[in-house]
Design a protein around this nucleic acid. Structure first.
Lengths: 286, 286
DNA sequence: GTTCCGCATGAATCGATAG
DNA sequence: ACTATCGATTCATGCGGAA
């Protein structure tokens, strides 16, 4: 099977218009936040953000398959001491365009940026808005089941500490039966709260988008060979993950520096054996 | 010092009108969710929710002191396969009334209700919207600092593991100095994500509002002797916590059953010594 | 070859300062 | 007065170089 990764240098809106309609299975993106990265992007003013994004959303609606999903990572800025409402307005306007606002996941950033202020605490979460074209859409819940692993480990570790005090008869107690329940069920479904650290270190892009994040949604909403789109590709995290997971991908990036960075890291085409048994590398999560 | 707890049986809107303006320091409430609890409350339709709540919000704005805070616990229902937008609309309409939307805290419900659906996961978070009348308001951040406890433990555990290998000279190394930094600083400020389990114990009210939740906000936004209001008092969690923490409180409840329940559990007036040194019981959190 | 720090840095925010 | 820029401030993480 051939897996393609198309990287396009250009303006998001213009390049989207050239993409075929109903051709994309999953859109995962993290657009520039209002006013947040003036140096690398245009720096859209919060009051103009909705107006700026809506034409793009319209194109995304066009290129997405009817069974597809759009995941939008966004968070409102604090402006003049209060949260700005552009995200709220955007959701309502996108619904008028025809989008379904299916769900809102929370990304809990375990290592949020430090700082102390008189009237607020550290902001340690962001929105992951799920939009669809229909009530019905593709979803592979089993693909993101989490091993009981760490959770069970913690429980069992506590048990071991207690072991020192307790006598051996406990194996026949109700407690022991509970353990067997935990061990019998190896996997659990996740919730709509994702705990992931922002990636820091050797990224040359100011957006800290951990690989585990697109990976999770690619698993959940696509199969191998499906098409993934990131209209604000940035340093190419989504595309890199998609290629590793054997999904076709398209990335659009306006900044030439990031475009070149991606081009060096991502192969335009990769031949792989289509083999369900082979497992690809996965980013570690919690 | 005398601490009062007024419990009022009646319709929220009507009773609010009787409360003096600029008299309340903190409002914490969890109003009936749209359509969610038809049997115990009126069961407001999602499409009418904003219209229903706005007159109440207007009265809350009136009775709140200019330095006060309003915490609204709310979450949108899923209607016809997508999240309804009444919460988003409510925020924008309340801003038009004069409210500042200062912040949105996330309540991560660690033990969320189990269940499996074909196109969504378990909902394990709710919004805690912070509204204020001004950019400046009272906030006692030190009151909610969390012990380094578990965090420091983790770090020190790692150190201890290394200790087994490392020689004793480390006490004079830079590393030793770091340890002393951690030990010297015993408390850390929290973030805007609250991890609390829903209370599943012996509550006779259908809304599972853990005591730790109002307690946290009462600590953060009030001092002893301040006035706390819960216009949808329900089983009286907020009032009970307020009284225990030596804050005056007013609770309004339309349902006679819950009103009677509260009346049995909460003293109308309690005399206490005003003594900063004495500590009250606190609900355990994480 | 391995372990172990040192250090840079990440979708931040506020308030002061300068223009 | 209003806007733009800059410095300081609750950390957690991963990489690189040193031992």
């Amino acid at each position: 099977m051939e897996i393609q990764s198309k990287i396009i240098l250009g303006d998001c809106l213009e390049e989207l218009i050239a993409i075929e309609e109903n051709s994309i299975d999953l859109i995962v993106t993290s657009p520039p936040y209002a006013d947040a990265r003036k140096k690398t992007y245009g720096g859209i003013h919060p009051n103009e953000y909705v107006e700026w994004f809506l034409p793009i959303a319209e194109q995304l609606l066009r290129v997405l398959k009817s069974s597809g999903t759009f995941i939008l990572n966004i968070k409102e800025r604090v402006v003049n001491g209060e949260r700005h409402t552009y995200v709220l307005e955007l959701i309502m306007k996108m619904r008028e365009q025809g989008w379904f606002w299916t769900e809102e996941f929370i990304w809990h950033k375990k290592n949020s940026y430090p700082g102390k202020w008189p009237n607020r605490f550290r902001d340690s979460w962001e929105r992951l808005l799920q939009f669809n074209k229909n009530k019905k859409f593709k979803m592979y819940q089993e693909a993101v089941m989490v091993p009981m692993g760490s959770w069970a480990d913690t429980r069992l570790k506590k048990l071991n500490e207690r072991d020192k005090i307790r006598d051996e008869s406990r194996v026949n107690s109700g407690f022991g039966k509970n353990i067997s329940n935990w061990l019998g069920r190896e996997m659990a479904y996740p919730t709509n709260v994702l705990h992931m650290a922002t990636e820091c270190g050797n990224k040359n892009h100011s957006a800290a988008f951990p690989e585990a994040l697109p990976e999770w949604f690619i698993k959940l909403f696509t199969e191998e060979g499906d098409w993934v789109l990131d209209p604000f590709a940035g340093s190419g995290t989504t595309l890199r993950v998609a290629q590793r997971m054997r999904r076709n991908s398209i990335g659009i990036e306006i900044n030439e520096k990031y475009y070149n960075l991606m081009s060096r890291q991502i192969q335009p085409s990769v031949l792989t054996l289509f083999d369900k048994g082979v497992t690809y590398e996965t980013a570690k999560n919690e």
